[in-house]
Amino acid sequence: MTSAVAQADVPVPHQARGRRSSLTRSRLRSAWLFIAPSLIILAFIAGWPLARTIWFSFTDADLNNLNDYEFIGFENYLANYDGEWLGLLTDPDWWHSVWNTVWFTAVSVSIETVLGIVVALILNAAFPGRGIMRAIILIPWAIPTVVSAKMWNWMLHDQFGVINDMLLRLGLIAAPITWTANPDTALWTVVMVDVWKTTPFMALLILAALQMLPGDIYEAAKVDGIHPVRVFFRVTLPLIRPALIVAIVFRALDALRVFDLIYVLTANSRDTMSMSVYARQQLVDFQEVGVGSAASTLIFLIIALLIVVTLAAGRVRLGEDPR
């Protein structure tokens, strides 16, 4: 992301400087013509729905009749009826879903980062069959999330699942575990499936960074007889850090809006419900467009805040360290 930010700030070098020729003017005019269709469509299918969602969060709209609603201010978020506080911000289920989402994001992204580095280092080594290996690890990423959730659902089946069977055979557990239904294991199960599915993405991004590193540093380190582990922590890790941070931010933003995996794996279970699952449940299952939109708006605000911070951090870093 950082290098693109840098490029966006620098004027295109072939742009004629000084007096504007008719060619430049016609190019500038055409620029707006070329982006207009995309901008209009994006405003129509992203900007407008977002604005309407935020508006709905201040109304008592119902899914069955979206034309008949009243403005009720912040009551979906927080309201006081006869000294009793109501609204989204007082709903323990909402806060539980926030906690689930944050916990899921932190744990799964951490594990994926570590495993992603390991897999990337493997793929960066020259060995016969490297190309095949790279194709193999892309498969979990390409399988539709719903399908992978169903596959794991079956593998984790409490009575007939292969995971319980394996663990029983190996003597690691004494009785079958109800992976997705047990509150103690449910969220870990979601994390495990997510790790399986998205570690390849992390690994490929890190691998791309690894492959851009100059080889002579490693030659030098080898000549000096420095231990590979030390080389990794002292040389490799600092050098790939910018790419690593970008990959982590992307993954974290993705994990914060998790829906498919949790919805299919554990349905609307309170133990694993993410913010997105909560919002959709209010909106569709309970038909409460107002409350659902309020939850959606909060999710949007949380993620928007993170995006702004990230982009700002990217700019600041560029100012200090022009690459």
């Binding site: 966006a8 994006l42 299918i45 729905p49 959606s296 999710i299 995006i307």
Partner: peptide, 25 residues
């Protein structure tokens, strides 16, 4: 640059944030 940033931001949007508006649309 600003427009590109906006478009990048839209690609990071949580889908659920537009759900009720998109439903109405």
């Amino acid at each position: 640059a600003l427009l590109l940033m906006t478009i990048l931001a839209v690609s990071m949007f949580p889908q659920v944030a537009v759900l009720s508006g998109m439903f109405e649309l």
